[in-house]
């Protein structure tokens, strides 16, 4: 990872099979309450032949994050590696971040009393929050901090088709470019046989 790395998610729409594994893994790993979907799989152009594709979306950890710009409490902070996090103790649950977000990422759990929305919850790229790293409080409020343990965010780690990529944006685009360029290459038209296994000589 280079020094100027900015961590990003990218979902390869040619690979996503809409299995919802990422969102289930996310909800399980962070023990999210029902109704909170930090990550969600959506299907675009549903039912239109040839145009239909699925994507996994969550907080995209924008470089110029609009949520951070509109927040009246200034509870957002963008880490040096580009992860956009927020302080739930400052958040007042006004939902302005939701209005600014192009992806509908901010979530608002019901606070209990009269079903009124509580403070905002969103994808942390498995990097926790402003509390002490890997403390009980951080885990309770923000979920697992896998980044601090050197692990990949759980959604991308378990993506069965490796559609969901996460990492330095430059590397992610390299991987995607390679995938695009190699479409149709190295495809076997004949079944594997003797020659592949042992060579043409007997």
């Amino acid at each position: 990872m280079s020094e100027n790395a900015r961590l990003k998610f990218y979902c390869d729409e040619h690979r996503c099979i809409s299995c919802d594994g990422c969102s289930v893994a996310c909800a399980e790993a962070h023990e999210l309450p029902a109704g909170i979907n930090r990550r969600k799989v959506i299907t675009m152009n549903e039912g239109i032949l040839g145009l239909e594709y699925s994507l996994s979306i969550a907080c995209m950890h924008c470089t110029d994050a609009p949520c951070e710009q509109v927040c009246p409490t200034d509870c957002f902070y963008i880490r040096e590696d580009g992860i956009v996090l927020h302080d739930k103790e400052k958040c007042i649950g006004c939902a302005y971040c939701l209005y600014a977000c192009p992806f509908g990422a901010p979530q608002f759990p019901s606070d209990g009393a009269f079903g009124i929305k509580g403070v905002m919850d969103k994808c942390t790229m498995c990097a926790g929050g402003p509390e002490e790293t890997n403390s009980h409080k951080e885990r309770e409020m923000y979920g697992q901090n896998r980044i601090s343990e050197g692990k990949v965010p759980v959604c991308a780690a378990m993506c069965s088709t490796k559609a969901l990529l996460v990492g330095d944006s430059a590397e992610i685009s390299d991987i995607y470019r390679e995938r695009v360029l190699s479409v149709g290459h190295g495809v076997k038209t004949q079944p594997y046989g003797w020659s592949t296994a042992y060579g043409s000589k007997i």
């Binding site: 927040c71 009246p72 409490t73 200034d74 509870c75 302080d87 103790e89 400052k90 958040c91 007042i92 649950g93 006004c94 403070v119």
Partner: peptide, 18 residues
């Protein structure tokens, strides 16, 4: 107070105001 929530530090006080 909600508009200038950051001046008041956000959190419980501003939530009560809300």
């Amino acid at each position: 107070i909600m508009m200038f929530a950051s001046t008041f530090g956000g959190g419980e006080f501003v939530r009560v105001c809300k």
